[in-house]
Design a protein around this nucleic acid. Sequence first.
DNA 1: CGACGAATTGAACCTATTCAAAGGGTGTGG
DNA 2: CCACACCCTTTGAATAGGTTCAATTCGTCG
Lengths: 251, 251
Amino acid sequence: MTIRKRSPLEIKVTESHQCSVDLRLKILRKVPFFQGLPLADIQRINDLFVEKGFDVDEMICFDGDPATHLFVIAEGRVKLMRHSLAGKEIVLDLLTSGEFFGSLSAQAGDVYSDSAQAQTPVCILTIGRDTFRKILDRHPQVALKVLDIISARLRTANERLHQLGTLPVEARLANVLLALADKFGEKHGKSCLIQVPLSREDLGAMIGATPESTSRAMSQFQKNGLIDSGREWIAVLDRQGLEVLTETDLS
Amino acid sequence: MTIRKRSPLEIKVTESHQCSVDLRLKILRKVPFFQGLPLADIQRINDLFVEKGFDVDEMICFDGDPATHLFVIAEGRVKLMRHSLAGKEIVLDLLTSGEFFGSLSAQAGDVYSDSAQAQTPVCILTIGRDTFRKILDRHPQVALKVLDIISARLRTANERLHQLGTLPVEARLANVLLALADKFGEKHGKSCLIQVPLSREDLGAMIGATPESTSRAMSQFQKNGLIDSGREWIAVLDRQGLEVLTETDLS
DNA sequence: CGACGAATTGAACCTATTCAAAGGGTGTGG
DNA sequence: CCACACCCTTTGAATAGGTTCAATTCGTCG
């Protein structure tokens, strides 16, 4: 009955220390908030970044540590999270190439608010936060783009608050799976493979549930043909089916 | 045993339609993101705002409606929230004089992401979102201030996500009470009165709990001398006592 | 004073957690 | 290349925290 399934995930084995200067430039030009900037400016800005590689599961920065840098992902997947004293952790976001995290505004408590962990091998471009602030001062258009991005993140954070506060585990899981499919989905015929290695524990930490509860819900979904899943991989089979569950508030 | 208590809240009965131009100017100068701007500029910007009054419980804007305006609170308290199809609602934020809400960035889905309701009689300054965007374009320093504010809101939204995902009702309530005391607290000797009318339902909607659960926890707190409370009012008596509970994760 | 809405409290119920044990995929070393 | 060990996953049963429904009390305002 149960067929042995090998992981269909393709993790790029980017030799992280070899983000050539050319590659870096190419990446920075794709970063949303640098788009529209004259190439010359981007080149100058490029020189301000320092690259750094991280292995899977390696921590990039810690919640509570002095916030000195802004990080831009050149290649790979990064998990943003917070952990409580009792060890329980919650995943705030999964980021990919072109996205940033770390210290943005020089203000408000100069410590990182979140921890960041490499979910795949990752190549990061770092820049001092004061240096970045100067870029913002000098290039107002960039500041406005950043504002738009942060606004969007606030919106989705609020949406998740809403879900966490009002929906049961099943519905929250359906919502996350759809969001993941949108962001990391790779179409393979009818199925949509989520190109991030995610354990039940990771998934649970995204919806405020235990690994066990998450597993139960996933099994349910799989039984109903909504998804296919194995060890640290997920594929969405029936998008509409999941969408029906996203607001299952109906007591 | 139980003493009859009258509400100690002082709700300003601002005649909302009478925010004189002078008053408006005074308020705009106090708005965080206009600080540091030359008075002449503020005066010019002042003319772009239109004032509007709202009674208690009146809706200021609806989640999902076309987003046309940015709102700045001149006087009063505003509740930002989202409601689900099943009627359950969650309170995202409580705002006061000088704070803003509504449509910021012209981008991403031109509908309001949240609903806003007057928690007290309120005087609002409104401005078209395109007009405001032009102000941001013209005054980069303002854009940076706004960025800082939105960043801070994102941080607290993430903090609340963390709490909602990992802490029990009791601890979440303690956290909210402390935050409310910090933002709206009015010292009266040892006690700190929270200057916002809040029902158990409102409080529950802030921590993702039912009015009943909230009431039980509040009764508990009151029994332990941590707070004092009556119909739609709360005072914090023992700050440290509450702080102990904020991380009661200990199973 | 009377009435309406808020707050409290109780008891049954239910969802999700906890603890525990067994099964399955992956990668490593022999 | 196979086998073993490790970790992820699944599933079960008991438990607990929170919800729901309902009835009562209390406070505020007309």
